[in-house]
Design a protein around this nucleic acid. Structure first.
Length: 482
DNA sequence: ATGTGC
């Protein structure tokens, strides 16, 4: 067992559970947290970061970011990298919503420009973008087409009329992992994916019209093309039932593998397989297909956002400057090169509720942004701010180029429903001038801003520790919830 | 997060 007593302070906001705390740990476990959060973190969550540190082939350290909380096996807000020789792959290190992520769409409107249109825009977006639990998309995919989506990702969407060629430049992996293999995706996952493509989903997924508030780094903001009072749109969604099913399928498979190979795993939910095994390879190919589904999903939704603005404002999306700033993945495994000790090593970085945050110079970053580092987009909760940051050298050195992904839940969904009523949450937002349209009343209570940690504190830790460089704040004007 | 929960 590990507990808060085992934590050793490394520096301000950085704490470690040393390797010798538990004899199965192979590397230290490290969490980035402010003083208050370190008091409030549950032993169960700390135990999870330590459990990950016990997995075979883990490199350097198991990492918990400032939004860390208890998850399935791996904590949410966690990062772990495994060496290509001797490491493992674990579906629980990605989570059920494969490539859940966010993208930020720019406009050249100001908050004053958009004011008279806000009500109509929110209504139009709510009408045009399907949302809610079990929601289906508008496009009726043919049975065979799902394979094209799983193989080609956002490119499929662009080729089928959803968006612009240049959009592809501003997504991780250009919106497509070419390692995807639709043959490794079960019929059941495909059957769930077919009707849902192009839908927002439920839970913490949302679509938000925002305005840029404070700018923290003028130079980087300029490079990303944002300025104070500018209107932007944030799209937060993932791979829906398709990704869920891919994860569930492979967890079952790997549970068997781990048993067969008699792997020593501290928690059954950490089911994993050696990287060179068929099970791991099959999962990686299916996971990539699920990731491609999610990029396609966000690309289609973005297209309807542009159409909504066109319909309501009466200008085309090009002249409204509705260019994609960037799209980031929050739940994914990436094969990357990182400096470990003196050497460059190829590792499989598991990010679960974590954002890649590559520092300046990395060739994975679009050329336009490369000199200042990767754009990092961190959504808050409905009714609180979201943030745009940039990747740093510190993140490269300490967290395999990773940072936080959100506010991090502190109250469970059921806890939130006990604590708040949907009406009081809606009224609070209305009193702040934020328009909200939601499919489900209970979800409004589950997603109450107070059910989450204060996003400002999360950003503050990233700033203090140097894991990311704050660039701009985004404030909500209108929210569409599932 | 998710057609459902153990």
């Amino acid at each position: 067992m590990v507990s808060k007593d085992d934590l050793v302070k490394v520096r301000d906001c950085v704490y470690e559970i040393p390797t010798d705390t538990r004899k199965d740990m192979r590397v230290p476990a490290r969490v980035y947290l402010d003083d208050e959060s370190i008091q409030n973190i549950s032993d169960g969550t700390l135990e999870q970061v330590a459990n990950v540190a016990a997995l075979e082939g883990i490199q350097k350290r198991s990492i918990g970011l400032p939004d860390i909380h208890f998850g399935y096996g791996f904590p949410i807000g966690g990062v772990a990298a495994f060496g290509e020789n001797g490491g493992v792959i674990s579906p629980g290190g990605v989570g059920f919503d494969i490539n859940c992520g966010v993208r930020l769409l720019k406009t050249n409107l100001t908050k004053d420009d958009i004011k008279p249109y806000m009500k109509d825009l929110v209504d139009e977006l709510f009408k045009k973008v399907p949302s809610g639990l079990g929601s289906n998309g508008i496009k009726h995919l043919k049975e065979k087409e799902i394979d094209d989506v799983l193989k080609n990702g956002a490119r499929w969407a662009v080729e089928n009329g959803y968006g612009w060629e240049e959009d592809l430049e501003f997504m991780e992996e250009n919106g497509c992992m070419d390692t995807a293999d639709p043959d490794k995706v079960s019929t059941k996952a495909k059957r769930r994916g077919i009707p849902q493509l192009g839908s927002l989903g439920s839970g913490n997924h949302f679509l938000e019209i925002q305005t840029i508030g404070e700018i923290y780094d003028e130079d980087v903001a300029k490079q990303y093309g944002v300025q104070k009072d500018q209107v932007v749109v944030l799209i937060h969604t993932g791979s829906r039932g398709c990704g869920y099913q891919i994860c569930a399928d492979s967890l079952r498979e790997m549970d068997k593998t781990a048993k067969r190979l008699k792997m020593d795993i501290p928690d059954r939910q950490l089911a994993c397989a050696p990287i060179d095994s068929d099970e791991a390879q099959n999962y990686l190919k299916a996971m990539a297909a699920g990731a491609n589904y999610a990029w396609t999903n966000r690309q289609m939704i973005q297209h309807w956002v542009r159409e909504s603005f066109e319909n309501v404002i009466g200008e085309d999306a090009e002249s409204l400057g509705m260019n994609l700033l960037y799209d980031v993945a929050h739940n994914i495994i990436k094969k990357e090169k990182h400096k470990i000790g003196k050497n460059n090593k190829t590792v499989y970085v598991h990010r679960k509720g974590a954002t890649r945050a590559f520092g300046p110079g990395r060739e994975e970053i679009p050329e336009e942004y490369r000199s200042v580092g990767q754009p990092v987009i961190i959504p808050g909760t409905m009714g609180t701010a979201s943030y745009l940051l940039s990747g740093t050298e510190t993140a490269m050195n300490e967290t395999f180029g990773s940072t936080a992904h959100g506010a991090g839940r502190i109250l469970s969904r059921s806890g939130a429903k006990r604590e708040f009523t949907p009406d009081e949450v809606s009224q609070k937002l209305a009193s702040e001038g934020i328009l909200l349209k939601a499919n489900s009343k209970p979800v409004i209570a589950e997603e109450a801003p107070k059910a989450y940690k204060n996003i400002d504190d999360v950003i503050d830790v990233l700033d203090k520790t140097g894991l990311s460089n704050p660039v701009a704040q985004m404030k909500p004007l209108g929210v569409i919830k599932g």
